[in-house]
Design a protein around this nucleic acid. Sequence first.
DNA 1: AATCACTTGCTTGTTAACAGCAAGTAAAAT
DNA 2: ATTTTACTTGCTGTTAACAAGCAAGTGATT
Lengths: 206, 206
Amino acid sequence: MQQNNASLTQAERTALSDKAMLEAAMALVLEHGPDKTTLAMIGDKAGYSRGLATYRFGSKGGLYDALCKSISRHWLEYLKQGVGDKVGIDAMCAALDTIYKFEQELPDEARALQILYSGAASPSAEYQQTAVGIRRRQKSDVAEWVRRGQDAGQVRDDVIADEVAAQYVAYISGMTYLWMMSPDSFDFSVANEVMKRHLRDSLTAV
Amino acid sequence: MQQNNASLTQAERTALSDKAMLEAAMALVLEHGPDKTTLAMIGDKAGYSRGLATYRFGSKGGLYDALCKSISRHWLEYLKQGVGDKVGIDAMCAALDTIYKFEQELPDEARALQILYSGAASPSAEYQQTAVGIRRRQKSDVAEWVRRGQDAGQVRDDVIADEVAAQYVAYISGMTYLWMMSPDSFDFSVANEVMKRHLRDSLTAV
DNA sequence: AATCACTTGCTTGTTAACAGCAAGTAAAAT
DNA sequence: ATTTTACTTGCTGTTAACAAGCAAGTGATT
């Protein structure tokens, strides 16, 4: 399929097939969901054999773990760019805007990530720890924003960073889930404005 | 298995096997997740044949839809009892306490429901509409509490009931999900106290 | 620079497990 | 007694996973 390139190093071949497989997997997950997607479909769509997915990723769960990590990495980079070096309330508001922008610009990745994170709730999900780790990291990042905002005098001192971060991450998890499940019932941009106002009202130093 | 009862009506037989199947399914979903649970395992655990689940519920997805509805019904009754005839902020706070109590008293049902709702994010989930409908109903119930609280003069008039309800339901969805994924990272009772304080601070009429 | 030993990427053959269906049996209703 | 309903068993196509094989790339020796 891809041997029109006269000659590739082993590393290049792997990188190429890896990318093709993960892209195919994402498209098929969006269309059919993780469980109705078969390894044969993925291999076929990627332009390889039905056996490559298992060979490369060990198992179906292993492939989804890799996909989860791959999209998460991209998302975390995107978020980092959107937030920049802001801290405190500014960082939290910028993150909300970045989430919305990500959903608008890269709806496929956003949706696929949401499906995978949701699937991680199942006891059989092999990427459960991956999903948990990312949520945990997001929470600690937010807590750090709050602490730095407090140091900078922007955020009031009597709030507890970890508590604020837990509420914030819970809100985001729930809102992205609900919005994906029924976009017509939940207006994301309005919700974001409400949330930003709330953050300013409740966290700004007196 | 259950024919020690001399004679049962057809309706009784169905009710009995229905209950046994759903209970078995719930236990197995908690242990192995929906996709690694097989219909044969469910029939076996319930004390019937491997074929009954398909016969009764049409398909694996149909069974999970029934399970989702069954646990949801119980949960909604439990919630109704916990909230009583409260409205406004009181109802929203009572609902938070009831959620916590449900998780403490009936952790299996709470966890199974969470797994099923999460699985509904997959495009292949046959109970997607069931899950969406319940979330939608919860949101409109909350909006109604807010409106009645406004009528009673407890809740400030300048908040928009639908917006408040969306935020509230999003927060609950996210918190229950995160708490199930890593109970050690999210302190549910502390989060509830924080949330209740926030509700009072931001919604109480001036 | 040409060959050869070896490794790595990928494919194909195979198997056990699975969901779903159809045809059957047993139990209750009429 | 006959019909209807609850449930079981036999069967088939599909699937994930594994193993054995093939082909392409790599690196050392000459």
